[in-house]
């Protein structure tokens, strides 16, 4: 009897997991559309520099490349963490997500440094339509990173105390999906904003 119940619960959990992950994918696609609008407005407005600086004058390619490498690495470590999660290795999960968190945090600090530099040089978002769209696009990505870090931190604290329960493992899976998604968006930002802007 207990075996049947157990089987039943496992089945239910599998369905819940399936629904949740699919639902999260759908959410990610809607989020992608929000970025799509930002990319589109950047594409329309990036030439409207209106006495302000152009992209070529303000973008620092080596700096952006550093950010990119850090974020890509964090995506890799998030993958390692999920691998450890599948092996049910709690300490490895904490370790690799911990590394991911630190990498994400350093990416965020670098981004804020860049923003700070631009604003103090007098090139804030109020200067021109180009800068408005640049700041909005990059900062929206940054806000997502912030939310992701926050979410990761709370989940990891829970994992530390409760272990890798079904619910928490599901959340870790979603976090890693979110993180890879942000990585992909960043690759587009790096290409369209920084690389194409620097030429």
């Amino acid at each position: 009897m207990s075996k049947i119940i157990k089987h039943h619960t496992n089945h239910q959990e599998a369905i819940t997991k399936d629904k949740t992950i699919f639902g999260f994918w759908v959410y990610l696609m809607t989020d992608l559309l929000m970025f799509g609008v930002l990319f589109a407005s950047y594409a329309v407005l990036h030439g409207n520099i209106f006495n302000g600086p152009s992209g070529k004058e303000i973008f620092d390619l080596p700096f952006a490349l550093t950010e990119t490498i850090i974020l890509l690495t964090s995506s890799f470590t998030a993958g390692l963490a999920i691998w450890a999660m599948r092996n049910n290795d709690k300490n490895q999960v904490l370790l690799w997500f911990g590394v991911t968190f630190l990498l994400g945090l350093s990416f965020l600090i670098l981004e804020l440094t860049e923003f700070h530099k631009l604003v103090t040089e007098g090139n804030s978002w109020q200067k021109s339509a180009f800068l408005s769209s640049y700041f909005s696009l990059v900062a929206t990505h940054g806000l997502h990173i912030t939310a992701g870090l926050f979410w990761m931190l709370i989940t990891l604290i829970k994992v530390k105390s409760k272990g890798l329960t079904e619910g928490l493992s599901r959340k870790l899976t979603l976090i890693s999906l979110f993180w890879h998604f942000l990585d992909i968006v960043w690759i587009f930002i790096f290409t369209i904003v920084y690389l194409m802007g620097a030429i």
């Binding site: 209106f50 109020q126 180009f130």
Partner: peptide
């Protein structure tokens, strides 16, 4: 004070 759709500083209302 951004300039996405404003008339000044390069905003584009038709967008």
């Amino acid at each position: 004070g951004m300039h996405f759709f404003t008339l000044d500083n390069g905003g584009n209302a038709m967008m």
